[in-house]
Write a protein that binds this DNA or RNA. Structure first.
Lengths: 228, 228
DNA sequence: CAGTGGTCTAGACCACTCC
DNA sequence: GAGTGGTCTAGACCACTGG
């Protein structure tokens, strides 16, 4: 069989065995297709997949080279928190912990492209998995461009779910860092103040407008995993 | 023009405008191809890209549905540290901080599939960007399956570079977490003990054998970024 | 200018899965 | 069984880029 997967396996094999060492040009698509007895499109599909994850580098006119660096691109799954908890087989629980109209923090203002005088809705919430704190989140919504919402709207479902019911987000941006739990963070996560926490900040966009900025804090044992 | 990118843009547009709301079936590939006047393969390519990042969900016989969750898959770039520093426009510096043959830690033994009695080579190194500590790393090498190495081999280049010169790694696995800097970590990163640090653990494999396990610690201001 | 990858086409067959 | 996506083919033209 000459599936694109088998072509990919063939190429990976040559690379692993160092028959095609790092930095070296590998045969052209035409040569591979002829050698393997399949269509060039099939070879192209296989090589494109490998180029996507950084195993090889392709340039027109030059050819395809085995990547020299250890750099790799991996796919990182960023599930909705509800999904994340339910996929663990745990019971999902959500509780609203704060709701106020206020000036954004500096980071939130920057992410939402607002000036200091603008107003945002700041929403705090705690997510639990089997009654254990899983994530403490603060969401700032861009009040200018979103329909009005009341505290009651968020008693049962999260700000993200409320948002997803009303608009379709087109893209986002993440930033992952380590931080020290503040007093409020520690109280909600039931950990000691000053404990290291994993912080994920996400900005959600619809077209050219940033709609929400979320800062999610995870307790120390939390791990973000990915493989390739 | 009917490029696959234009088909993707067309579909994204319908989703953003909620003409095709979340959870809804969108037209079949055949219908889209006929409607847009292009080949089904072109539509397939466009829809596959969208499915890859979680915008739509596809199932045979059923059709293609607009994803309902906020879940997204994003591509995370995990560059080699040298590349990461040089891409910032900073001067890369590497210094070996420790070299010993010893029993692996529990995490390292697990990642390398070794038992407690096995030996590993443990290598500690500090990477600097413009003379500022950028990353403190400990690498455990699976001594059983790797060519012997001496301390001198690592005076000028990192364990990863040494490894890449000898074998071709096929895949890896990451785990990202927040941790508290220990005394040794703090000394090398020039921060206070107990400061939160971002920890990235990576296992590197060649085929079915884990070859190395690395634990990289980054100072608090470090951010891992990704967008979609 | 020529060589390489990037893409499109029209048609075909297969794989999965709901009915 | 029938409808949908998944893939392969053979051929074609285009886009980029090195010489």
């Amino acid at each position: 069989m000459n599936t694109w997967q088998s072509v990919r396996a063939y190429v990976l094999d040559r690379i692993r065995s160092r028959e095609w060492p790092p930095g070296e040009l590998i045969p052209t698509e035409q040569e591979l297709a002829a050698g393997l007895g399949c269509a060039r499109a099939t070879v192209n599909r296989a090589l494109r997949e490998l180029a996507d994850i950084g195993i090889i580098e392709r340039r027109r006119k030059v050819g395809t080279r085995v990547a020299t660096t250890l750099a790799r691109r991996t796919v990182l799954d960023m599930p909705a928190i509800r999904t994340e908890i339910e996929d663990m087989g745990a019971i999902y629980a959500y509780a609203l912990a704060g709701f106020s109209v206020e000036a954004p923090t500096e980071a939130a203002a920057h992410a939402l492209q607002l000036s200091a005088g603008d107003e945002t809705v700041a929403i705090k919430a705690i997510y639990c998995a089997d009654d254990l704190p899983h994530c403490f989140e603060t969401v700032w919504l861009n009040a200018r461009v979103l329909p009005p919402l009341k505290r009651e709207d968020l008693e049962r479902k999260s700000a993200h779910e409320w948002l997803a019911d009303r608009v379709t987000l087109t893209h986002g941006h993440f930033s992952i860092m380590a931080d020290r739990a503040g007093a409020e963070d520690a109280r909600h996560l039931k950990i000691e103040e000053g404990t290291p926490v994993l912080a994920i900040e996400r900005t959600n966009w619809a077209d050219t407008t940033p709609l929400s900025f979320a800062r999610q804090l995870y307790p120390p044992q939390h791990r973000l995993m990915s493989g390739d």
